[in-house]
Each structure stands twice: as structure tokens, then as C-alpha cells.
Design a protein around this nucleic acid. Structure first.
Lengths: 236, 236
DNA sequence: ACCGAAAAATATGTATAATATAAGAAAATA
DNA sequence: TATTTTCTTATATTATACATATTTTTCGGT
């Protein structure tokens, strides 16, 4: 079978959105594909093929891959190519260790620096999450993300915010899993409530330890889920 | 004066070192230039000019700049170009806040996971630092870096290591300043010794709080130095 | 049938060329 | 003289071409 080889197009052609550089659009598209599992761990990423699938040239694809490498979504082997990064249980544990410390730091700082207005926003996010009775999983994940983002923001530490957001993305693939566990949503809301109370009273130590405990809880549940369905080595 | 414009070459032509990709060599060269002040904060980075100065094409320069952006050494304005990132006092404070939490985490984990062999290596680094009587500043900085790197490594958390190394580089420009303060070197050695003792006894909490305190001390000294010579806004 | 080496194919790394956009200067108008 | 508009120029962005390294395939020998 020679001549034209037809590659299955799994990445949509990019839509020129505003004035974001192409590499940025390509980057987001590829990250999305990796997180959603369209591009599977270990899979080789060939510049030409990806460029064709998305209807752009190799240059923006290359730059997107470089950025994905920096954010640990792909691994590059010099002169060989780029591969979608696999995530081992060890990786997940490592990320949780760091997140625990940094979410604690963020909450502690937020307790010192948060405004009434921001507290109000947090209340609203929590209220939305309980009011609607049965939210679907996607909405729960979003509301959870929103809450944490508000804590990060109140820490007033830009670099901390970007590190935490990156860590969150690293384990994005597992968040839906753990939040789907029966009773987890309710417990998470309760933990969030307690954190808000600590923030409201500007109790830094309390906020810190609550936030750390919250992440440890999430870690335990995540590992319970994962060890049930996966071999101990590679998660996916 | 038309025709050829002569640009002052401040970046050495790259030497093809083994099989590292060109973009990697260019990246390191530019980072070095930024940290050493050859490329000054706020300065515009023009691809063509940089490529000519280093004797390579624009492609590796572009990729190096992207990477520098990800590591916060340059800021990019879309369709305008790249500029050397300035570091404000707020930035330095932010980095120290994170470092304090993460150095504490690393030391705490190291206390649980360190081996006799690694403890021995730490002893050697400390011994070297005191034995030679009068080390020059560069050697002191290196020995300090080595010690911290050993703690990071003993944490057995790869991602934590890379985050901490990046944070260290962010404030690299100020480390020499603070270590040059009379008495600082001696005090730092003493603090390191206490950390080693905590690690040896696998006392996680003690190691954590000592490491955090160590960073807070460094932060205070750094700010004392900086606020003496600089206006409160931009450090450089 | 099973290695092993050479050659072809393929992909990455690097360079160069083409295109689009933004900033600045000059000119025209009020 | 001030202000707006147009044109030029410089530069980022994207595309393509070329060189080099790696992988695969094929063919010959054992």
C-alpha cells in the first residue's frame, strides 16, 4: 500500500481564535487531547502528522510540544521524538505531596489577605454546588476547581498560583474519578466549608492544616480508586 | 551611517557541545547572560540579532526564548517580542514564600528517606565549606547549592526537585549578595549542621521546621541587602 | 530459516524564505 | 501648529526547504 496514507484525524483543525498565537492554540488543543485520552500515554507525537491533522505547519506544533514538555505532558528524547507522558502511581503521589504543602501555604496566606468580597464569592460557589441537588460530574469538577482557584487567588502570590494550577492539571485525569466516589462530593463540600470559616476568621494556621488535610483526603480516595482498577506500575 | 550595522557581541558564539540540541545550548547561554546581568531587565530580545551574535539560525533562538518564558526569565508580548523579565521585590518575596514551604517539605521527606551514604555526602560538603578557611564567594555559593541539592535528592520526589531548582534559579541573582554579608556564611553552616542532625535522626518535623527557618533567615538577609541599595519598586 | 549488513525511508534538527502585524515617520488636512 | 492618515520599515509569526540521524526493510550469506 503505497502513496497517500490516510491518518485518522483525532485533532480538530484549529480555529483562529482572536489574536492568540497559533502555537498557543495548538498547545491547548494538544493538552486537551492528552488529558481527555485522545492521545494516549506512550504514544509517539510526530510533528508532520500532527501538523497535517490540525492544518498548520510544523513550527507552531514544535513550539507547542516544547511547552507541553516543560509542563510534563510529554517527554522528549533527543533525535528521536516526543511521546505522551505516562503517569505512574509514584508521579501521582509526588504531585499530591507537593500539592498538600502548597495548598496549605495558599490557604494560610489567603487567611491573612482575603477580602470580604472574595469570601462572598466562595460562599456562592459552595452554594451553587449544593443547591442544585443533582449536579452532573462535570459541574462538580468545575465548581471544585473554582473554589480552589479562589483560594489560590486570595494568596496574592502569582507564582504560587501558576505552580498550583499546573499541578492540578497534572492529575486532572483522576479528579473526576475521585469526585465520582459516592459521598465524596458531600464530604468535600464540608471540608471546603470549614476552610471558608477559617479564612473568614483569618485563622492562618487553621486554614493551612484544613487545606492540607483536604488534599490528603483527596489523595487517599484517588489511590483507593486507582489501585482497584490498575496494575501497580503504570496507571495508563 | 547606512549599510552594515555593527552590533556589540555580548553573547559568545555557541560551541557545539556533544549532542545536546542547539536550542538547549542557546537556552543555557541566554539564561547565563540574564542571570549575570549581561542582558539587562527590560531589554528587548530580538531574534535576528541574538541569532547573529551566537552564530546560529533563528529557530533555536526562538525555542530557547519560549523555554526562558516558561521559566519566568523573559516575558513575551504577542506580536511585539520578548523582553528580559524584571524582578520586583514582590517577586522575590513570592519566591521565598514558596521556597520556604517546599524546602520544608523536602527536608521533612528527606528525613524519612535519606540513606547513610547521603548523610556522609552532606558531611563532606559541609566539611569542605569550613575547612578551607577563606573560600571565595563563588565557592561558597556552590557549596551552598550542593548542600541543598542533596536535601532535594533525598526527598525522592522528582517533581519537587525540579520546582525547587527552578525557584533557586529565579533568585540566583541575589544569593551571592546575601551570602556575602559578614557572618552569614558561618550562620548558614550552623543551620545546615542542625538540619543534617535532624536528618540523621530521621526527625521529620524537626528537619522541616529547621529548613523553613533557614529559608526565612535567608529571606530576611536578602531583603536587608536589597532595601539598602534599591528603590522599593523594581529591583533591577 | 535466521541473523547481519547495507540501503531506503522517515523523522527530527536546523536554516531560510514568505507573510502578517505593529510601531514610527512623513505628509496632508483642519 | 496640531492632528489624523498613510506609508515605510522592522519584527514576529508561520511555512517550507535542507541536512543529518535513526529506524526499518530488504537482500545476501550462513
Amino acid at each position: 500500500m503505497k502513496g497517500e496514507t490516510f491518518v485518522e484525524k483525532r485533532l480538530l483543525p484549529v480555529i483562529l481564535d482572536g489574536y492568540k498565537p497559533l502555537r498557543e492554540i495548538v498547545f491547548e488543543s494538544m493538552r486537551e487531547a492528552i488529558l481527555s485520552g485522545v492521545l494516549k500515554p506512550g504514544e509517539r507525537l510526530m510533528e508532520i502528522q500532527l501538523a497535517e491533522e490540525m492544518g498548520v505547519s510544523r513550527t507552531p506544533v514544535r513550539e507547542a510540544i516544547r511547552k507541553l514538555e516543560l509542563e510534563n505532558f510529554v517527554v522528549m528524547i533527543p533525535r528521536k521524538g516526543a511521546y505522551v507522558a505516562g503517569v505512574s502511581l509514584k508521579d501521582v503521589a509526588d504531585v499530591f505531596e507537593i500539592r498538600s504543602a502548597l495548598e496549605g501555604l495558599a490557604a494560610g496566606l489567603a487567611a491573612e489577605r482575603i477580602t470580604e468580597d472574595e469570601l462572598e464569592q466562595m460562599e456562592q460557589v459552595l452554594f451553587y454546588r449544593v443547591s442544585e441537588g443533582a449536579l452532573d460530574l462535570e459541574q462538580i469538577v468545575k465548581s471544585d476547581t473554582d473554589f480552589h482557584a479562589l483560594v489560590y487567588k486570595a494568596s496574592r502570590n502569582e507564582r504560587l498560583i501558576s505552580i498550583l494550577e499546573n499541578l492540578r492539571e497534572q492529575i486532572q485525569r483522576f479528579r473526576a474519578t475521585s469526585l465520582a466516589v459516592p459521598g465524596r462530593n458531600k464530604l468535600a463540600i464540608e471540608e471546603h466549608r470549614m476552610i471558608v470559616e477559617a479564612l473568614r476568621h483569618h485563622n492562618s494556621e487553621e486554614a493551612q492544616s484544613l487545606a492540607m488535610a483536604h488534599i490528603v483526603t483527596a489523595e487517599n480516595i484517588t489511590f483507593d480508586c486507582l489501585s482497584l482498577k490498575n496494575d501497580p506500575d503504570k496507571v495508563d
